[in-house]
Write a protein that binds this DNA or RNA. Sequence first.
DNA 1: GAGCACTGC
Length: 853
Amino acid sequence: MKINGKFPAWKKKKRKNNDEKRVKNGTNIVSINGISRQNGGQDPNLAMLSVKKKKRLRKKKINGTAKIQMKEELMNSTVQMTNGVLTKKTNMEMKQIITASSPPKTKIQSMTPKSVNNNSTPISKKPNAAIPSKNAEPKPKNSPREDATYEKFIRPQLPIDVVEQQLMHELASQETLIVIGETGSGKSTQVPQLCVRAGIAEKGLIAVTEPRRVAAVSLASRVAVEMGTDLGGTVGYHVRFENVTSHRTKIEYMTDGIVLRKALVSPLLDKYSTVIIDEAHERSLHSDVLMCILRKCQAQRRSTDNPLRLIIMSATLQADKFQAYFDNAKVVLVSGRTFPIEIHHVNPKINKSFSATDYVYNTVICVKHVHLTEPKGHDILVFLTGSEEIEAVAHQLAELNGSLPREADFILPVPLYAALRPEKQREAFQKTPQGARKVIISTNIAETSVTIPGIRVVIDSGKVKTKRFEASNRIDVLKVHNVSKAQAKQRAGRAGRDAPGKCYRLYTREDFQKFDAENMPEILRCNLSATFLELMKLGMKNPHRLGWIDPPESQNIDAALLELTSLGAIRPINSDRSKFVLTEMGDVFCMYPLSPEHARILFQAQKEGCIMEAIKIVAAMQTDALFSGGSDSKSDAEVERVRRKFETREGDHITLLKIVLTTNDFFDQLNAKTEADARYNKSNKSLEREYNEAIRKFCNDNMINEQHLKTGSMIEDQLKQIAIEQNVKFSTCGADLLKIRKAIAVGLFLNSCEYDRQEDRYRLMINPAITVKIHPSSALSRSKPAYIVFSELMKTNDLYALQVTLIDADWVRPLITEHKKIRKNHLAETAQRIQQIAKVEPKTKKQKLIVTF
DNA sequence: GAGCACTGC
């Protein structure tokens, strides 16, 4: 998947001149398709816009205002819920609401929730008259360009301004602070700046962690504008493949995963005086792990001259958990800035045409109702669970147009989900044509990851598809669940970004009351092995005794320990078998951003002498499907024909290798041609156009997803870089594919299966009670070899093995025997430990506050 | 012969 590195010379030069100041460890790769979600450095909010609009906005960037305004909309999207209010409002009342909310008034929460009452900061209602200048940050003298460009910027008022003095005071005096503020409060952009103004940044950087790349990049650029500095100057960001910071940087926006990687190299994180964890309420795996290790880190730095300050920022009022976890830390509340939203629940007594079970049917009925009753021009956003449902509804809505009254507008259904090709995704952001109403039918991608302008009505099915890990059988189960109350609120809020909105919920109010309050934290529903490996690198010995906000189930913890032990990454300490340490191999695994199984493949490949091939395959395994056939234009037969082209008898991993090698050849030829063209004085512009056009055609002909290809290529480079740092001797096996299959078999040996002719299914070798089917998308689904390994087991309607490779049973048998031995000991010890715990600690309810590694 | 939400290093 070699796209970058061999970049035409003309492109490299151009880049270098523009980006001298930037510190980039990523790859300078041209945007293959121009617009992408995983964009390399370009503004993520611009990324979703049409090319024309983008150009327009770029032009305006000189005076800063256009971009700022747009960011303002995107960053401070305003939400207010009139939760549960069903009353219809008259036009007059609606007008009043609109005048009252535009511009939305700053409102400060005067009441404090019960849970945080005793230690929360009382917030003054008086508007703050003496707010220090927003540009108090001294401007760097050596960069006149920055001053000229951004000097005149004055940011609009935000709700957080009112508590500014209060916050400054608390920031200076508290070791840990919890800031609760709903969307639009301005906390993500202002709190880091307040830290700088409070003088906290003198001792070290301010780190701000975000769960998504887009957020880290766009917040950094916004704050850079506000502080009158270049991106990468006083304010920078660091996400995977992209480090835009410099020695001058004081505020560093990062994804939470990056901070974790940094902690692995420098466990005390002493470069940072403050770590701000944003969006803590989302409870992402990384942010939970971070809170866990930062608490420990804080304790260790407490007595030094460089103590660590923690700020936990959350959008929901359920602060009690965080407060208890951080030793009764102070809580500051800031209100959001929002437009009101009318909530309508289904009432079965009135809405007789609704089905009790079929929410897809109800969706169509509801869209029709809304379309015929709501004012023209109000676009609709529908939340459903998956691509199949979405395409079905889109189809039915398109057909509905035939039966609408003559005066009604046209319904324009627009599907939106992550697996959709980028150019199709872009349609959701295009302006609605005259005489039509856009109905965007989306998965939960539209909940947080992307923001669509112009939405006035939300239709919420109340359902979401989530993946949960079944530790007992090591299976991922993908199932439709009810959303949480917080999630339903988030969805409704999407209707109130630009103006007052409405939300139709396709479930009764009684149903809503039964929903969980919050989303289930990721740590409770995923395989913990990779996380434990990282924590053990940091010195954790017994994960059962680690202080989590929500501790994972014992069974899940044990499953991860067993997996890591079997893979040879950790071993129990002889003196105390409930404690574990990393093995030498485990120490190497940690350096790779991979699951322990995938790291094991690389380790084995090194022994077998096929590390180059292994890196290509493992990198491709990290991306989503490279093939992007299905749903649009191309027929099933066509998709099948292209797929066959790459299929190999050895299985899907070798198929991946074939695709990557084919692509490499293509890029070699394309780059050679482009460089030759450059010598004939073709303009850079036309060269770039032809280059991108050729890539697009290649991907289209081969049904390869450009975006995933690009990501895979960058991961390949990253893995190679790490391998170099680990002094790995590079080797290639050429056409001898047996070696690479062996490496794959060893890494994935826990997933090896034997064919059962009678059942016509595969039995898991580590647990013969479980039988699985090879997914029909696999190259081996028809040939049914005797022994296979797979990448992943997925439970949908049946239990399917995904990504399958043909193996020799002798490669894995010794490993399986060893695994069974370990499991037996492990189980005996687990049983013993459980007995001991039951004796010593009868039902301890209160959570320990001291971290015990 | 099925059909897979979303992130992140």
